[in-house]
């Protein structure tokens, strides 16, 4: 039995403390210890992006992050993307039909929200989404939703 390590996170705006085995991945801490099962495990190897969360404001694949490395940092999962309501990109994904089976959606939503926050446009915006694989939609509707959300963010009603 190995010693446990303490991991303190600001998780979706709330300060939380976890005692976990040293080899715990951030992904498993989120799903199993924090009960936030929105974040999905696809490949477990950094390739699909389904497990993407924000770590100090930038998207990372949580399957490759040691929970202990995230200690003291801020984590936002799909559950915490919008404040209370859906994030504009999530709204746009729904409106555009950018969700089919939904398995990639939490990661896509998180990366897309971060891309919008960075304020990039056009091809650069598409490049930032390229690490999130989707086997259903063919991407066109996801990218259209991102364009819609960019307009919504730029010109709030």
């Amino acid at each position: 039995m190995v010693d446990r390590v303490t991991v303190t996170l600001t998780l979706n705006g709330e300060r939380r403390r976890f005692e976990v085995p040293p080899g715990r991945r951030l992904l498993d801490l989120l799903r199993d210890d924090a009960g936030l099962t929105g974040t999905k495990e696809g490949c477990g190897a950094g390739e699909c992006g389904a497990c993407t969360v924000l770590l100090d404001g930038v998207p990372v694949t949580s399957c490759l992050v040691l929970a202990a490395s995230a200690d003291g940092r801020e984590v936002v999962t799909v559950e915490g993307l919008g404040s209370g309501a859906l994030h504009p990109f999530q709204e746009a994904l729904v409106a555009r039909g950018g969700v089919q089976c939904g398995f990639c959606t939490p990661g896509v939503a998180v990366t897309g929200a971060a891309a919008l926050a960075r304020g990039v446009t056009g091809a650069e915006r598409t490049r930032l989404l390229a690490g999130n694989l989707c086997r259903c939609t063919g991407y066109a509707k996801i990218l259209a939703a991102l364009d819609d959300a960019a307009e919504a963010v730029d010109a709030p009603a």
Binding site: G46, P59, T111, R127, N132
Partner: peptide
């Protein structure tokens, strides 16, 4: 650097 993996990889 901008072509290593995808963006979530590049951020780590």
């Amino acid at each position: 650097a901008g072509q290593v993996g995808g963006w979530p990889i590049q951020c780590r």
